[in-house]
Design a protein around this nucleic acid. Structure first.
Lengths: 179, 179
DNA sequence: GTGTATGCAAATTCTTTGCATGGAA
DNA sequence: TTCCATGCAAAGAATTTGCATACAC
């Protein structure tokens, strides 16, 4: 039995199964490993890097190789099914990945605690239109990252700076209090 | 001891010549190597990666080491004097650098020819305000990258796709015309 | 059955670290 | 004269490649 379309089309956009269809259409084989990785990327909701993904995937298939993770991510990226993020290089130089299912959004990264928030707004859509109109540029993907301090860390940071002052400049000099 | 970026970017906006002063204030020594690198970053107008910068610097000082380039860039980045870019990883996984003297802007990267354009608009300022107000987030830096095809490459790309079709599907099958 | 995808080992690319020496303030 | 900065060598992190085997279609 098949089910009729109940929700507006947009609601259905690229559900889990549509990714697989998209891949099948291109002649990409749905191997056991790829199924595992696709499921993890799709359901985790996190911004995972290759290593994290590999560690999670190994729990489902001990033999799954790190190289397969890299190859799969590359394939998905080039196929436009995942976005590659850097998250301001907070955690290092690795890349992070997320599905392209959601609406475009900015990533707000706290440079003190590493927390990542997603920010949905009109700014990206507006920029897209301007860039397309002004430059005649055909946009395939965008990436917006914002770095700074989250509300909580602003307070903690202020304390740290204050404390650092106290220990660094004990008597108008540059030395240490002890050592 | 030198001090890292603490205040929002706007507080740090400075004229070209103030970079050295800013460094001196923080107790950063203006060595021969750093002068060379600062000058290159400042005047090149390009988005240079560490290796390019190193090659250019070597022409002015054969002994200057690649490690010094990395250390200097890191120092400038942490000091908020340069921005680190990825340019959609078009050229690889290296990072690119530019001075923070200019107004914030997006980088538009053509994924076919690699050309990078800078796009100045209101969108970043508007997003900043929204993020600060809605999330109570203290923004230190932003990064906006747009990938796609420039007006010229759109045409060339269309041709390429057309040609690829011709060779791939000669007679409704998947084989080759010869071989 | 056929040809793509995987696993393994090794290589590559980009960047950082340890330590003795050099040099800016 | 005092440390910070440099150069050198070596290590480290992230990612890719070559090739024989496995397995999805």
């Amino acid at each position: 039995m098949w089910h009729a379309l109940v929700l507006p089309l947009s609601e259905y956009r690229m559900a889990q199964t549509d990714i697989r269809d998209s891949l099948r259409e291109r002649g990409v084989r749905l191997t056991r490993q790829r199924k595992i990785l696709l499921d993890l990327i799709d359901t985790s909701g996190e911004h995972l890097d290759a290593e994290q993904l590999y560690q999670m995937a190994k729990k489902r298939d001990v033999k799954l190789n790190r190289v397969t993770v890299y190859r799969t991510l590359k394939m998905l990226k080039q196929g436009g099914l995942v976005d590659e993020l850097d998250l301001m290089h907070y955690g290092g130089d690795q890349h992070y990945y997320e599905t392209r299912l959601k609406q475009e959004h900015a990533h707000i990264i706290c440079l003190r605690c590493g927390k990542v928030e997603e920010f949905f707004g009109e700014h990206i859509q507006k920029m897209r239109k301007q860039v397309e109109q002004n430059l005649g540029f055909q946009i395939l993907l965008t990436r917006t990252e914002v770095g700074g301090y989250c509300s909580n860390c602003q307070i903690l940071r202020a304390r740290e700076v204050e404390q650092a002052r106290g220990t660094e400049l004990p008597a108008r000099g540059r030395g240490r209090t002890s050592g």
